[in-house]
């Protein structure tokens, strides 16, 4: 039963991943990518990572909606009403990606993966929480600084009028 679910989700994930670059409408491309992420969320649920699966679904829906907002705002023909292709050096890119896939696949199949060490804890989320608060605390603090830097950077880059030229002081 789980194997069937795995193959269904895996094939849908890759198919919608390919569809992202095939469809004309930007909104459809974004929601194809969202479908691919939802399948990956489902796969994580299959791997007993309940928290991470639900998290990927939660975060990716919001991010893909933000992505759709920007896709529609900056792309030439957002609804795909005028068929046009925005591809340059397609052949070369296809060649490289197929080569990369072949190399990765060979590496995957050939390397003898080590056997599993230890059993999955009864509550992986609790284990994750303990890791973040304990040994992995540096990861969280580092990411906290990265988030702060991103906030300030993105506000600096994107806002046109700063605090000095407030138009209608309210």
């Amino acid at each position: 039963m789980q194997v069937a679910a795995f193959w269904a989700l895996a094939v849908t994930a890759v198919a919608s991943g390919v569809a992202v670059f095939r469809v004309d409408s930007m909104a459809r491309a974004t929601f194809a990518l969202l479908a691919s992420f939802l399948c990956v969320g489902g796969l994580l649920l299959l791997l007993d990572l309940h928290y991470l699966g639900a998290l990927v679904v939660l975060m990716m829906i919001m991010e893909m909606l933000v992505m759709a907002v920007f896709m529609v705002m900056y792309m030439m023909n957002p609804a795909g009403l005028m068929p046009m292709t925005m591809i340059h050096n397609g052949r070369w890119a296809l060649g490289i990606s197929v080569a990369v896939f072949a190399a990765l696949a060979a590496g995957i199949v050939l390397t003898p993966w080590p056997p599993r060490r230890g059993a999955p804890p009864d509550d992986p989320t609790y284990a994750l929480g303990e890791a973040i608060m304990g040994p992995k605390m540096l990861v969280m603090m580092g990411i906290g600084l990265a988030i702060l830097a991103t906030m300030i950077g993105s506000v600096v880059l994107s806002t046109d009028r700063g605090r000095y030229d407030r138009e209608d002081p309210r």
Binding site: M73, N77, L81, M82, D160, E167
Partner: peptide, 21 residues
């Protein structure tokens, strides 16, 4: 010019925000 299915695509114009959309 640029009519799709008989209706024009929206034109861009300048804006107080500096983005021509």
């Amino acid at each position: 010019t640029g009519a799709v299915h008989g209706l024009a695509m929206a034109e861009r114009a300048d804006d107080r925000d500096g983005l021509k959309l």
